[in-house]
Design a protein around this nucleic acid. Sequence first.
DNA 1: CGCGCGACTGCATAATCATGTGATACCGCG
DNA 2: CGCGGTATCACATGATTATGCAGTCGCGCG
Lengths: 218, 218
Amino acid sequence: METSTRVLIYEDNPDLQASLSQLIAGAPGLSLVGAFGNCTQVTTDVARLQPHVVLMDIDMPGINGIEGLRRIKANAPTINVVMLTVFEENDRVFGAVCAGADGYLLKKTPPARLLEAISEVRAGGAPMTPAIARQVLQLFPKAPASPSAGNDESAANLSAREREILRLLVEGYSYKMIAADRGISIDTVRSHIKKIYEKLHVRSMTEAVSKALRQGLT
Amino acid sequence: METSTRVLIYEDNPDLQASLSQLIAGAPGLSLVGAFGNCTQVTTDVARLQPHVVLMDIDMPGINGIEGLRRIKANAPTINVVMLTVFEENDRVFGAVCAGADGYLLKKTPPARLLEAISEVRAGGAPMTPAIARQVLQLFPKAPASPSAGNDESAANLSAREREILRLLVEGYSYKMIAADRGISIDTVRSHIKKIYEKLHVRSMTEAVSKALRQGLT
DNA sequence: CGCGCGACTGCATAATCATGTGATACCGCG
DNA sequence: CGCGGTATCACATGATTATGCAGTCGCGCG
């Protein structure tokens, strides 16, 4: 029974493909199952080679890396796919993360960091080159600034405890679960929830959760 | 002309505040400009102390860390704010990144990594604990998979009727109201909702609504 | 001091949700 | 044809939610 991490590489630049292959093949705990210059056969490749991690070049002839990523995720969603790119363009980053990328690294990433990234993605992380991570955070919609925004009225009106409890509602906690989580009685939970409803002008949990999520109240 | 990174800490746990303070104060290239247990005076603190980096605890009495973050960003957007938390909850992560967080670390992050994070954020990166980075990527709406979709299972898997009914749940409709609205019996509504729960792997209305809104299923 | 507020608690009750079991009709597909 | 899936419906039961009423305690404020 093989316990090493099976890595598959898609990279059209021959030099980089060679050096990545060497790096992976020579790294303890990793095994290189394949290295290709394009991902036109990605579906069959993946089915045949059963990789745990795919290093996917974004720019390749034929099918681009994002499409390759999509196909992998469509057919084998548990495979971790780390995107590799020369550039840091926003639209590429956005496209890749929306397609389900598990990590995103610049090609110039030093070898040690690349190996680290592989083990990180295997452990459930999402390795990103710092500049990419920054871009990822900046892709999020910015909430309106706080000061006296009318929108934040509802939020500012909730007490800290009420906000905590609303958060747990959003997570799908029942009254009983909230009580257990916060170490209070279920009747206390009810009281807080009743108050939340009044402040948010809602009459049910679903309305409260919906409003909270839509207005970023929690 | 001082060239060290000025760090301001907001952390209400006295032990952690003390150890963070010691860490920062003792690190070459960093200087600790303040450490407080709450961020009620964040605006004046920041104006007075002129930090480059703020380490901000998410949970604090009075004004919570996300609100503190918002105020910093509203008044001094160039200050880098790294959020600290015990937990990894999705809504917190989402709230923080929408409020403009520059990084997000778990409190249990080892000291060496924390120092690294500070220099990383200064260099334009966005330091994130691996698990948080994973969550950040997962916060993005998933694009429709390419033609032979399997990835969009949850979304594509709901029938038209189920999707209609989920939409009404999100609007806060009760079973009875849905039945009236669609001209069907309440037991029919129940059957559909049961099926929706199975497909979405949830067990309550609030979970379904939450999931629907977060993943753009409706 | 009284007041308002937040956090906490209890009890009773009605309404609503969630689950299981069962069923029919219709459609498309191999 | 049988099968699976969708839409529809009913009944019974237990669990959970929502509401009303009542209360205590601590805090800050005029």
